Simulated scan of single mutants.
Amino acid sequence: MSDQLPVDYQPPIAPISHRNSAVDKLTIALQNWTDSIPQEKVYLHMDKPHYAPGDTIWFKGYLTMGSRHELSAISGAVYVDLLNDSDVLIKALKLPVGNGMLAGNFILDANLPSASYHIRAYTKWMLNAGQDYFFNRVFNLGEPGTIKSKSQLSFQQTDVQFFPESGCLVNGIASKVGFKAVNVNGIGTAVSGNVIDNDNNVVAVINTLHAGMGSFFMKPLPGKTYTAVVKFADSTTKK
Rank of each mutant, 00 (worst) to 15 (best):
K238F: 11
H210N: 09
K48M: 12
L93V: 02
N185T: 06
K25V: 05
Q157G: 04
L89R: 09
I57R: 01
I57N: 02
N99M: 12
G178I: 03
K180G: 04
T158Y: 05
D132G: 15
F155Q: 14
E143I: 14
S154Q: 11
N201L: 15
I147S: 04
D35N: 14
N183K: 13
I107R: 13
P144G: 10
G178V: 04
E70Q: 15
T34L: 02
D81L: 04
S151I: 14
V23T: 10
A228L: 03
Q10W: 00
G54S: 10
K124W: 00
T237P: 03
Y226D: 06
G104W: 04
F155M: 13
I147Q: 12
G223E: 08
V23I: 12
N84S: 08
T236P: 02
F139H: 10
K231A: 09
T27C: 00
E70K: 14
Q157K: 15
Y51D: 13
S166D: 07
R120I: 12
S215G: 06
Y62E: 09
F134V: 08
D109R: 13
V177I: 14
V42G: 06
T158D: 08
G212C: 06
Y51L: 13
G145K: 11
L83R: 14
T225V: 11
V177A: 05
P49T: 12
P38H: 02
D159F: 11
D3A: 06
